[in-house]
Deep mutational scan, measured.
Amino acid sequence: GATAVSEWTEYKTADGKTYYYNNRTEESTWEKPQELK
């Protein structure tokens, strides 16, 4: 299949934890999204 550009962006909180934000759905998660595995 075609490689889609991930909708997920990786961010870090002030205390250094990583989370992921989906630009399309406006969803955020602590877990690494399936698309990034």
Rank of each mutant, 00 (worst) to 15 (best):
Gly16Trp: 00
Lys32Thr: 09
Tyr20Asn: 00
Pro33Thr: 02
Ser28Ala: 10
Lys37Leu: 15
Tyr21Ile: 05
Glu27Pro: 00
Pro33Phe: 02
Arg24His: 10
Glu7Asp: 12
Glu31Trp: 05
Lys12Gln: 11
Lys32Ser: 05
Glu35Phe: 08
Glu10Met: 05
Glu31Phe: 08
Thr13Arg: 03
Thr25Lys: 02
Asp15Ser: 07
Arg24Glu: 09
Thr9Met: 11
Gly16Met: 01
Trp30Asp: 09
Val5Pro: 12
Ser28Phe: 15
Asn23Arg: 08
Gly1Phe: 11
Ala14Phe: 03
Trp8Glu: 00
Leu36Ile: 10
Glu7Ile: 07
Ala2Ile: 13
Thr13Pro: 00
Tyr20Trp: 15
Asn23Phe: 10
Tyr11Ser: 05
Thr13Trp: 01
Lys32Ile: 12
Asn23Tyr: 11
Lys17His: 09
Glu27His: 04
Glu35Tyr: 07
Pro33Arg: 00
Pro33Glu: 03
Glu7Arg: 03
Asn23Leu: 10
Ala4Pro: 12
Lys37Met: 15
Ser6Phe: 07
Glu31Gln: 08
Thr18Cys: 13
Ala4Leu: 11
Ala4Ser: 12
Gly16Tyr: 01
Glu10Gly: 00
Glu27Gly: 03
Leu36Tyr: 10
Ala4Ile: 13
Gly1Met: 14
Glu35Leu: 04
Pro33Asp: 02
Lys12Tyr: 09
Thr29Ile: 09
Val5Gly: 11
Thr13His: 03
Ala14Asp: 09
Tyr19Pro: 03
Trp30Gly: 05
Trp30Ala: 07
Ala14Thr: 13
Tyr21Glu: 04
Thr3Glu: 13
Ala4Trp: 06
Ala14Arg: 08
Tyr19Glu: 04
Asp15His: 04
Glu35Gly: 10
Trp30Gln: 08
Tyr11Phe: 14
Tyr19Cys: 15
Thr3Pro: 13
Arg24Phe: 15
Ala2Asp: 13
Trp30Val: 07
Gly16Thr: 00
Glu31Tyr: 07
Lys17Ser: 06
Asp15Lys: 03
Lys17Gly: 05
Asn23Trp: 14
Arg24Pro: 03
Lys37Phe: 12
Glu31Arg: 04
Glu10Phe: 02
Gly16Phe: 00
Thr3Gln: 14
Asn23Pro: 08
Thr29Trp: 05
Tyr21His: 07
Pro33Ile: 02
Gly1Lys: 13
Tyr21Met: 03
Thr29Pro: 01
Thr3Ile: 14
Lys32Pro: 09
Thr29Ser: 11
Lys12Ser: 07
Glu27Tyr: 03
Ser28His: 14
Thr13Cys: 13
Tyr20Thr: 00
Glu10Lys: 04
Gly16Asn: 04
Thr9Glu: 11
Lys32Phe: 06
Thr9Phe: 10
Tyr19Trp: 12
Ala4Gln: 13
Tyr19Ala: 05
Thr18Lys: 07
Ala14His: 10
Trp8Asp: 00
Lys37Arg: 13
Glu35Trp: 06
Tyr20Glu: 02
Trp30Lys: 05
Lys12Arg: 14
Glu7Trp: 06
Tyr11Ile: 14
Thr9Lys: 10
Pro33Ser: 01
Lys17Leu: 10
Tyr21Asn: 02
Thr18Val: 11
Tyr11Thr: 06
Thr9Asn: 08
Thr3Ser: 14
Glu31Leu: 07
Tyr21Gln: 04
Val5Gln: 14
Thr3Val: 11
Asp15Arg: 03
Lys37Ile: 15
Thr9Asp: 05
Arg24Leu: 15
Ala4Val: 14
Glu31Pro: 03
Asp15Met: 04
Ser28Asp: 03
Glu10Ala: 05
Lys12Asn: 06
Glu7Leu: 05
Ala14Leu: 09
Thr13Gly: 07
Thr29Val: 14
Ser6His: 10
Pro33Ala: 01
Thr25Val: 02
Lys12Ala: 06
Thr3Lys: 12
Lys12Thr: 13
Gly1Thr: 13
Tyr21Thr: 04
Thr18Gln: 04
Gly1Ile: 14
Ser6Pro: 11
Asp15Ile: 02
Lys17Val: 08
Ala14Pro: 13
Asp15Gln: 04
Thr9Pro: 01
Ala14Tyr: 03
Tyr11Asn: 05
Asn23Thr: 14
Lys17Asp: 09
Gly16Val: 00
Lys37Ser: 14
Thr18Leu: 10
Glu7Val: 07
Val5His: 14
Lys37Asp: 15
Ser28Leu: 15
Lys37Trp: 12
Trp8Pro: 00
Thr29Lys: 06
Arg24Ser: 11
Ser28Trp: 15
Tyr19Gln: 04
Gly1Gln: 13
Gln34Met: 12
Lys12Asp: 03
Gln34Arg: 06
Gly16Leu: 01
Trp8His: 00
Val5Ser: 12
Asn22Ala: 00
Gly16Ile: 00
Asn22Phe: 00
Glu7Met: 05
Thr29Glu: 03
Tyr20Arg: 00
Ala2Thr: 12
Thr25Asp: 01
Glu35Ile: 05
Tyr20Ile: 00
Ser6Asp: 10
Tyr11Glu: 07
Glu10Tyr: 03
Glu7Ala: 07
Tyr20Lys: 00
Lys37Pro: 09
Asn22Gln: 02
Tyr20Gly: 00
Asp15Cys: 13
Trp8Met: 00
Lys37Val: 15
Glu35His: 09
Arg24Ile: 15
Glu27Thr: 05
Val5Met: 12
Tyr11Trp: 06
Thr13Phe: 03
Thr13Ser: 07
Ala2His: 13
Thr29His: 05
Glu27Val: 08
Trp8Thr: 00
Gly16Asp: 05
Glu27Trp: 01
Ser6Asn: 12
Leu36Ala: 09
Glu35Met: 06
Glu10Gln: 06
Thr9Trp: 08
Tyr19Arg: 05
Tyr21Leu: 03
Leu36Pro: 06
Glu7Lys: 04
Tyr21Phe: 09
Glu27Asn: 03
Arg24Asp: 08
Gly16Ser: 01
Glu27Ser: 04
Lys17Met: 07
Trp30Ser: 08
Lys12Leu: 12
Gln34Leu: 12
Thr18Asn: 06
Ser6Ala: 09
Lys17Gln: 09
Lys17Pro: 01
Thr25Leu: 04
Gly1His: 13
Thr9Ala: 11
Arg24Gln: 11
Lys37Tyr: 14
Ser6Trp: 08
Lys37Asn: 14
Tyr20His: 00
Arg24Lys: 10
Thr29Tyr: 07
Ala4Phe: 06
Glu35Thr: 05
Asp15Glu: 09
Gln34Asn: 15
Val5Ile: 11
Thr3Asn: 13
Thr25Ser: 04
Thr13Gln: 04
Ala2Glu: 13
Ala4Glu: 12
Val5Tyr: 12
Thr3Arg: 12
Trp8Tyr: 02
Trp30Asn: 08
Tyr20Gln: 00
Gly16Lys: 00
Glu10Ile: 07
Lys37Gln: 15
Val5Ala: 14
Ser28Thr: 15
Thr25His: 01
Leu36Lys: 06
Tyr19Met: 09
Glu7His: 08
Gln34Pro: 15
Lys17Thr: 09
Leu36Arg: 06
Thr3His: 13
Thr25Asn: 02
Ser6Leu: 10
Gln34Ser: 13
Gly16Glu: 03
Thr18Pro: 05
Trp30Ile: 07
Asn23Ile: 14
Ala4Thr: 14
Thr29Asp: 02
Leu36Trp: 08
Ala2Met: 10
Thr3Gly: 14
Val5Asn: 11
Pro33Gly: 02
Trp8Lys: 01
Arg24Trp: 13
Gln34Lys: 09
Asn23Asp: 10
Thr3Asp: 13
Glu35Asn: 09
Asn23Val: 14
Ala2Gly: 12
Tyr19Ile: 13
Thr13Leu: 04
Glu31Lys: 05
Thr9Tyr: 08
Leu36Asp: 09
Glu31His: 06
Tyr20Asp: 01
Glu35Ala: 08
Lys17Arg: 14
Glu27Met: 05
Trp8Phe: 02
Ala2Trp: 05
Lys17Asn: 08
Ala4Arg: 10
Asp15Asn: 07
Thr29Leu: 08
